[in-house]
Design a protein around this nucleic acid. Structure first.
Lengths: 125, 125
DNA sequence: ACACTTGTAACTAAGTGAGTTACATGAAGC
DNA sequence: GCTTCATGTAACTCACTTAGTTACAAGTGT
């Protein structure tokens, strides 16, 4: 698909699509080609693409915590960060582990299930 | 302590402090009193105040995900949200459980440990 | 050549959140 | 009662972030 088509689907601008997916391209999750018949393709099978990988490629953070101090030398801040850091490391490991089990293929299957459901319902009504 | 004092400590504005801590007050974690000798106090013992409670009182989200659809009717979005939702519920439960085990008393103890360390180091050098 | 696509820089607009000012309200001390 | 000091809160400004847009260079197939 082209950026134009993708942008139409999600109601946004082709440039925004290109800018956003750039991370996925750099990670090898998708590939792009220019010129006639160009556009975007999956870099490998949907079964091999996990949400954890997508999240990382897009530079998303799994937890809304900052790890660097705003006031170096503040002992209170250091204590808070230290306490949260143990927590953060474990939490991120857990979240990544869970997200790595969800693949694009899972999402596609769920999408088709919903699509069939809509189709049947619409037809029945 | 007064908002003025707290604001000085964290290098910000008294109004910002009051605005921020309002959530803690509403949750009963701290109490405030006006007028002469007024200010802020802990609502109960530091051992009884967990980071989970503070986080919730401040309206912080544990995960940077949105649960409401931006394009109702979009099956792709529905599939993604559904997949993430199972994940989100479990993750939030896990995170809250971990955070509920860290109390203000823990942070205070860690702070004092660091304080002694600095003191000894400074004295030795 | 030409049409079509990505890659990217540069600018604009909208939204968010800290910071600030101003003032009303309440409480302690004289 | 009056003064002083504190919180409570509305309203505004400013900085920052991010989506959106325009423009154009560069690569590719017909």
């Amino acid at each position: 698909m082209t950026s134009e088509q993708l942008a139409t689907f999600i109601h946004t601008n082709p440039v925004v699509v290109r800018r956003t997916i750039a991370g996925l391209r750099d990670a090898g999750i998708v590939t792009s080609s220019r010129g006639h018949g160009g556009g975007w393709q999956l870099g490998r099978a949907p079964e091999e693409i996990s949400l954890a990988e997508i999240s990382a490629a897009l530079g998303e953070t799994l937890l809304p915590f900052s790890t660097e101090p705003e006031s170096p030398g503040c002992l209170v801040e250091q204590a808070v960060i230290a306490a949260l850091d143990d927590f953060r490391v474990e939490a991120e490991r857990l979240l990544a582990e869970r997200l790595s089990r969800i693949t694009l293929a899972d999402l596609a299957a769920d999408f088709h299930r919903r699509y069939e459901l809509i189709g049947v319902t619409s037809h029945a009504v």
